[in-house]
Design a protein around this nucleic acid. Structure first.
Lengths: 338, 338
DNA sequence: TTGTATGCGTTATCAG
DNA sequence: CTGATAACGCATACAA
């Protein structure tokens, strides 16, 4: 066997008959070299099967060409869509993705972000704008660009949507149909500004219309189909049963509708259901789900692009708010005449 | 402001009145130090807000405490489940995840894996066992542990399932119900050994029973609900329409069933549908989907644990095959009497 | 048990 | 344009 260990800049340099420094330049600042030299170096590198060692490069240059992403969970259609786009976009520019998840736990997020920073990520992408003071501190101490997704605090960049408006839109739709007794199944409000925003929007629409949203009409659940069923079960047992139920995310709405159907109710004749997110699935369930389109994939793509901008020039670029839009399908209709 | 730049081992050492090396040890091999010294160092580190610089640590030690994962796509319930568990498991042991996706493109996978290796990952987790020769070469050249998920070639470790058996199981179920004219919607066979295995299993069951699976009864599609609908549309237009349709993944089966229902067919009275994967969703669609349970999350968890073992001791540990199991629900029943 | 000194593979700063 | 050479921040063999 010819070579046993991995070749480094030194080996390439020797083979090309130039200095180590020249090889380094050939690989990172090609235009700085003579065409002739450049060719020799590239050839030598190829022949030796040279692979740059990013760890060393990162240490010497301070930049690692990695971006850290901390999401609540990887196991979510929403975040998966966004992540896929983030990965694709960053990858095109030669960046690798370092991912962490924290299960909606602020402390875990703090540790995770600290870990990402320790690993020397050049930038950080996170979800939402609510986090521990200590987390913000360590982000600022790191001195690297930050992009918040979905929503975020003013002083850092953000690519997201108006969650309040999304909530308002879907509630308004039901109100317009004639509903006044509306139930809501939402994710946990604590530590989740997206969910809080959506609920607030729903509240706003209701109160604008002169209707109330009693605490009993709001069921806080985990974010899964099963939890949607649970939440629906609770709401259906109210003495004054709602004529429509909003799931603050489609997953909950879909679970809820399934539960109602399981109990013999006809959707939307007996009761309406609506969500927020517009999952691919929501168009295919029976009946298809009325919802609010939230461009998850685009949030991911734009966040990544935003990050690339910041990496090039660290000046904050502010907030980007993507439009959301009501998507009316078959799961909603006017309430049955009492 | 007291300190402007980030403290390093040197600063901590100075403050604790020990040598740089001692601090290094205090953080990585605590048991090597006197309790008293250890305490002093930790205190100094805490007071200075010391954060280890993994880039430097990686370069000096050769180990980066990162694991690379290359999946076809992040935007898939299956891979998302597995990834979540991988992340959770590795994270507990202090490892970070470097993820890449390649859209089922072998060349892209090759580049992605090369990139991960360049970044110095300590181990590699991939999906399936089919990849370019060049990719295998670079994996071997890297000299780091590899774990294949779902299925893989013999000479590298693998945590997966028997895809052939999964296909066999679901086909056998339909055959047992009395079906003989079965249609299949599968993902692209090329570059996807999981899909090939499943189709082969289906073929085996059919031929064991003395039935044929004509080419026209197999529709190759992308892996999405929409593609399932498409595939179903094709199969329904055959002169000898199948009495049952298998989706090689639940996503396809669900899409197919939706398409059939959209065309006025009653499932399962007019036509049966079955899948493989057992997505959370599959239990909730109407009618609930008969399928084969594939423990995606466990594949992820066990792969990660397997990787941790390999990281500790690089001796290959062979293949782990997790059991799959038929889950009979409401979407299948005997064919209608002609 | 602790300190000293060297090197990890690149980048970047100076000269030449 | 190219060649020496000093960091980068930490791990570790070796010495004490």
């Amino acid at each position: 066997m010819p070579r046993s260990r991995k070749p480094g800049l030194a080996e390439v340099a020797a083979r090309a008959g130039v200095s180590l420094a020249t090889v380094s330049r050939a690989l990172s600042q090609p235009k700085m070299l003579q065409a002739e030299t450049l060719k020799r170096v590239h050839e030598a590198a190829r022949e030796l099967g040279y692979r740059p060692n990013r760890k060393a490069s990162a240490l010497a240059s301070g930049r690692s060409r990695t971006v850290g992403v901390a999401v609540p969970t990887l196991n979510s259609a929403i975040f998966a869509e966004a992540l896929q786009e983030i990965q694709r976009t960053l990858y095109e520019e030669g960046y690798q993705l370092l991912v962490a998840s924290h299960e909606y736990d602020p402390l875990a997020e703090s540790v995770a972000i600290g870990e990402l920073v320790s690993h020397g990520v050049d930038g950080l992408i996170v979800v939402g704008g609510e986090r521990l003071r200590a987390t913000w501190d360590s982000v600022e101490a790191a001195g690297i660009p930050l992009v918040q997704m979905w929503c975020g605090v003013d002083r850092f960049d953000c690519v997201g949507i108006d969650n309040v408006h999304a909530g308002w839109l879907i509630a308004r739709h039901l109100i317009d149909l004639g509903h006044s007794r509306i139930g809501v199944i939402t994710g946990h409000q604590r530590h989740n500004d997206r969910q809080r925003g959506r609920l607030r929007g729903i509240r706003n629409a209701l109160s604008e219309a002169g209707f109330a949203l009693p605490g009993a009409h709001v069921s806080e659940q985990a974010l899964s189909v099963g939890s949607g069923r649970l939440g629906c079960a609770t709401l259906l047992e109210l003495s004054e049963r709602p004529t429509a139920i909003i799931g603050a995310v489609d997953l909950l709405a879909i679970g809820a509708a399934i539960e109602a159907q399981g109990r013999g109710l006809v959707v939307p004749d007996d009761i309406s259901f609506a969500g927020i997110d517009n999952l691919e699935f929501s168009a295919h369930v029976a009946p298809s789900l009325t919802t609010v389109e939230v461009p998850s994939a685009e949030i991911g793509a734009r966040s990544a692009r935003h990050m690339l901008d910041l990496l090039r020039n660290p000046e904050p670029k502010g907030h980007v708010t993507l439009p959301v839009e009501l998507v009316v399908r078959r799961s909603t209709r006017p309430p049955p005449r009492a």
